[in-house]
Design a protein around this nucleic acid. Structure first.
Lengths: 195, 195
DNA sequence: TGACTTAAGGACTGATCGGTACATAATTAC
DNA sequence: GTAATTATGTACCGATCAGTCCTTAAGTCA
């Protein structure tokens, strides 16, 4: 068996770089030139390895979702309590405002906003992402319920959807120019609906 | 004084049509062709009247904001109570899901998501929109506070920002595929943080 | 060495992007 | 009528879009 000329780049690293471009610019505004520059590969390598801009985008959405779920799951495990984890997550939009400029938000929710119903494949990936995020928050809520931080009488699934909704809203508000302190106030108020 | 050849179209109607295109597709994905078709005018008329795609977009953002503030203010005036108005607004994302497909969301917040920091002029218009929406909700909350529907001890400004945030989040979730019933559950839960 | 396989370089594609130039049409003022 | 003014139609612009094709380079295997 022949192996041919070896790849001169790391496909996974290139994928990460592409994800960042989509994350920052969205799908439409991310030109192939933008992507190639960030990925530091040639056009031929790009099409050979990733097929098309749309296929690359799908892979970026999946990568983002996996990465995010992994990070959140790890954070939940290490958190002092379920509620503290939720507080940290709700405050994340505020951190984003003070950290890098401008805030990038969540790639999944950005994508939901950019092309809601215009692309069935993307809509499916977005829906999958949203439900997996909800799942992590449901775990956190159940953990908080088990120690009495949150009323066990409340439906954990509804609470989880509420958390996803609020975080998504806060990230949008961060992009709309809301100050970090205001975001923290709203996050704290949102938390009060959980207990 | 000479008046020259009269316009063969209604500039305000054309602007409304353009706004709908931007609302549905976003800025980048709205091509000049899309806009011209919807506005039912020629390219020459377009550039003569509106200057450029970007200027048109700015006018659409302003039109949307004015329209939205007008509609919300009227709805608040006619609402049985401040809190009932807030409930209706929070449920609007659910109505959007069952009504037209796919949901369009809020043009201002869609724009915040699409190009947060990449355009200073647009960022300014987005911020102006967000604060005017907040203002309307603050009025509703103060009205609710004055009749005891909402604890007067709470900061109306923070509550108003919370409402804007939650509605924005719900509209995003609607685009991400959340069911109408789930949206209503979350909206009701969100309301509980106000009392 | 040379056959084979795969990757990268670079020229090229048709389509579309937003925008312009200019001729023509429709109106008012005189 | 004619001049002046403004709107529309149409051809055109360079730039860029995503994507293809074909050559060349860099490896393995015999």
């Amino acid at each position: 068996m022949n192996q041919g000329r070896p790849l001169e780049f790391d496909p996974h690293l290139a994928l990460q770089k592409a994800m960042e471009v989509f994350w920052r610019r969205g799908y439409e505004a991310a030109s192939l030139q933008n992507l190639l520059s960030a990925m530091a590969i040639s056009k031929s390598s790009f099409y050979q390895t990733f097929g098309s801009k749309h296929e690359l985008f799908q892979r970026c959405l999946q990568l983002f979702r996996e990465r995010q779920v992994r990070l959140m799951t790890a954070a939940l495990e290490q958190a002092p309590s379920g509620k503290e984890f939720l507080r940290t997550m709700l405050r994340s939009a505020a951190s984003e405002v003070v950290a890098d400029e401008p805030p990038k938000g969540c790639l999944i929710m950005n994508t939901a906003t950019e092309f809601s119903g215009r692309d069935a494949i993307v809509a499916d990936l977005v829906g999958k992402g949203a439900s997996q995020f909800t799942e992590v928050f449901r775990c956190a809520i159940e953990r908080a319920q088990s120690v009495g931080e949150i009323d066990s009488g409340k439906d954990a699934e509804v609470l989880a959807r509420y958390v996803v909704t609020t975080i998504s809203g806060l990230k949008t508000m961060a992009k709309a120019g809301m100050q970090a302190t205001a975001i923290e106030d709203v996050a704290e108020l949102a938390l009060s609906a959980l207990s």
